[in-house]
């Protein structure tokens, strides 16, 4: 078996897909993984993958063209998922599941139908990983809170399990095109930056000016207060139900939400 070791990022995995495909070892003889292995098997050959944005973009283009936006979106979600740590027994590594799903898709008369083959374990894995990322991203579309800094920039901090930042960047760029905003992912040490009127980009956060992020605009406090009192007033006393509240809005999100602090 030839095992391609890829970086645990969307581009890393797509580069792995490109290399594995181009290697011509035959689909049955290759596997992909994003895991850092501490046990190498003597019978396998390990091939480190050098993440290459051009290769990744080529893969992305092909996938979009052949499978459509929807399946492509699911594959991206799956690639951005954080896997169980330590990995569960028998659980397929996401890179391998993605590769095998792509192989199956391209062998079908209609590649866009690949996610219907839930009986296949690797398709199932892609489906469930994608659902995990998708759910968290969807939650954060609502649970993320911006605060207005002194310089007018809207700033939000999130602590997600999965790498949802690109999806949030896309959503909020469409929603707030005329704002300067920044979304800081403290789990992955990355941030979305969106300058007013332009597209967004993702950057690492080594030289984040943490002092600047503490200086809020003069109005910020006032709106937070208004919002918090709206939040308290909207609940119906006779139906009070903290358990349901915590079930719907899991505790791990609450620390970054102004009305729960």
């Amino acid at each position: 078996m030839y095992i391609f070791l890829c970086e645990d990022t969307l581009d890393g995995i797509f580069t792995g897909v490109y290399d594995a495909w181009a290697s011509r070892y035959g689909h049955n003889n290759v596997a992909l993984t994003t895991q850092v292995l501490d046990n190498y098997s003597l019978f396998d050959e390990y091939i480190p993958v050098q993440t290459d944005y051009e290769k990744s973009a080529k893969v992305a283009r092909t996938l979009k063209k052949r499978m459509g936006e929807e399946v492509y979106g699911e594959l991206c979600h799956a690639a951005s998922a954080q896997e169980e740590d330590p990995p569960k027994k028998h659980s397929l590594n996401k890179a391998d599941a993605i590769y095998k799903t792509i192989v199956l898709a391209l062998s079908l008369p209609d590649s866009s139908k690949v996610l219907q083959y839930l009986g296949e374990p690797y398709v199932n894995r892609v489906f469930s990983l994608s659902r995990r990322t998708g759910n968290e991203a969807h939650h954060l579309l609502g649970f993320l809170r911006f605060q207005e800094l002194e310089n007018g920039i809207l700033f939000a901090k999130i602590s997600p399990k999965h790498h949802v930042l690109p999806f949030l960047g896309e959503h909020f760029s469409d929603r707030l095109p005329q704002e300067n905003f920044m979304i800081y992912d403290e789990t992955h040490h990355l941030a979305v930056l969106h300058p007013k009127g332009k597209g967004f980009f993702i950057t690492d956060t080594q030289d984040l000016d943490s002092e600047m992020l503490q200086r809020f605009s003069s109005k910020e406090q006032e709106y937070q207060k208004l919002w918090c009192s709206f939040f308290e007033n909207i609940a119906i006393e006779a139906r009070k139900n903290p358990k349901l509240q915590n079930q719907n809005l899991p505790k791990r999100f609450q620390k970054n939400i102004v009305e729960f602090r």
Binding site: H138, L141, G142, F143, D174, R175, L176, P177, Q178, E179, G197, F230, F231, E232, I234, A235, I236, E237, R239, K240, N241, P242, K243, L244, Q245, Q247, N248, L249, I257, E259
Partner: peptide, 30 residues
């Protein structure tokens, strides 16, 4: 879609922004 001008867009499945003390989804300024 937002369309690049002004502010705001809409997402068909809806988005919950918070849950009030009675456990209900709060999505709009009601």
């Amino acid at each position: 879609k937002g369309g690049g001008k002004g502010i705001g867009n809409a997402i068909a499945p809806g988005i919950c922004h918070t849950f009030s003390a009675d456990g209900r989804c709060v999505s709009l300024l009601k």
